[in-house]
Amino acid sequence: MTQHATRITTAHHAVTVLSQTNTVTDWMIRYFGQWWNAQPTTAPFPGPLVTADVDATTVTTYTQNVSNRPHQETTYANTRMLYGRTSGHVVTAAQPSEHLAYRSEPGHLHIVGHETLPVCLAAARLAREVVLGQLLADGWSILHASAVTDPDGQTVLTLGGKGSGKTTTALLLARAGWRLLANDRVFVRPDSDGIRVLPWPSAAAIGLGLLDALDLYDPVRERTQRGERLHPTQHQRVTDALATDRRKPLWNENGKELKPQLFPHQLSEWLGLSLATEGRAAHLLFPHITPATTPAKTDDSRAPSAEDFFTAATEDRYADVFELLPSEQLIPKRALDLLSHLPHHSITLSHDVKDNTAFLTELLAAP
């Protein structure tokens, strides 16, 4: 049977995804191609491999293997996972409710499932984890920030907690001609010329209200109503809202906002934003949004801190079941020091898009 392959590369680190189903390898291009370099490839396949196929028989075999031996349990991608290790760093795992199973050995991770979509999601998730492990081992760190670049790659990093305005700031600048590098987190690494910045590829979560305020709601609604699909992790209530032209924010029972989830390529193809693949840190912003105000700099002396970085202790997206990450992740003191010496401002933004954009443009143009 024909085997399809996509190679995913960033900063000289790579993983190759192989599948008998071209939907899987096409998904990798769709998911990674706009921020990392994802391209079809042919043998030989140097470096780590992720093989991902639809194969119900193998799912049953792997699941029985892990269930019938001593194993552990964890929550992985929001569902229960069983996993067990054997000699030679071989890991067998299963997510029974998702009908997914895995076998991992050094340099090769095999994913199987009953249906194509869960296999695509699992393959993208773990391909990114493979490259993440390589980047962390190579001295990169994960910074909780949005990022935009100018044509020369000079990058504005916007830092802050959830709801502080990171995505708002990035999208305001992206609409004003900057290139979007990330909307929530980035990789950073010091070098002889400062700090390099790489994107973290993922679905972009943008609230209904923010899309509407930025005049970006209609293209998402129109394409959705024509049958085009956003990322499948999007909650059904959001899909229903787009179908019925609801523009107000949606919240779940725990107070978390439910947002449209756009593939990276949809940011450019649907919203007309330009994306960047790398930058160099040049400016830091620490926003706070106050609806009835005039955008301005504030007296807050906020500066980057260790809390702005993700480490193994603070990053709980996925348990490292397959031993893909370095055993120790420390706060990067040199990166933190270099970031602290960059021009940085605490700012207040309003809900007025025109005023916010004019303020940010003038602020960043100042010498």
Rank of each mutant, 00 (worst) to 15 (best):
150 D>E: 02
150 D>H: 05
150 D>T: 12
150 D>W: 03
151 P>T: 04
151 P>W: 01
152 D>A: 13
153 G>I: 06
153 G>P: 02
153 G>F: 04
154 Q>N: 13
154 Q>W: 07
155 T>L: 04
155 T>F: 04
155 T>M: 06
156 V>P: 00
156 V>N: 06
157 L>T: 06
157 L>W: 02
158 T>S: 06
158 T>E: 01
159 L>Y: 00
159 L>A: 03
159 L>V: 05
160 G>L: 10
160 G>M: 07
161 G>S: 11
161 G>L: 05
162 K>D: 03
162 K>Q: 05
163 G>Y: 02
163 G>P: 00
164 S>C: 08
166 K>H: 03
166 K>Q: 02
167 T>K: 02
167 T>Q: 04
169 T>E: 05
169 T>D: 08
170 A>L: 02
170 A>W: 00
171 L>Q: 01
171 L>K: 01
171 L>M: 10
172 L>A: 08
172 L>Y: 08
172 L>T: 05
173 L>I: 07
174 A>E: 00
174 A>W: 01
174 A>M: 02
174 A>Q: 00
175 R>N: 09
176 A>W: 07
177 G>F: 03
178 W>D: 00
178 W>A: 07
178 W>K: 08
179 R>G: 02
180 L>F: 10
181 L>C: 07
182 A>H: 04
183 N>T: 14
183 N>G: 14
183 N>E: 15
184 D>K: 13
184 D>S: 14
184 D>Y: 14
185 R>M: 15
185 R>I: 15
185 R>T: 15
186 V>K: 14
186 V>T: 15
186 V>H: 14
187 F>G: 10
187 F>L: 12
187 F>V: 11
189 R>H: 10
189 R>P: 01
190 P>L: 07
190 P>F: 09
191 D>M: 11
192 S>L: 15
193 D>C: 13
193 D>N: 13
193 D>L: 14
194 G>W: 15
194 G>S: 12
195 I>N: 03
195 I>H: 12
195 I>D: 10
196 R>L: 12
197 V>F: 07
197 V>P: 01
198 L>D: 12
199 P>E: 13
199 P>W: 12
199 P>I: 14
200 W>V: 12
200 W>E: 09
200 W>D: 10
201 P>F: 13
202 S>T: 11
202 S>A: 13
202 S>N: 06
203 A>G: 13
203 A>V: 08
204 A>D: 07
206 I>F: 08
206 I>W: 04
206 I>D: 04
206 I>V: 12
207 G>D: 11
207 G>W: 09
208 L>F: 13
208 L>N: 15
208 L>Y: 13
209 G>N: 15
209 G>A: 15
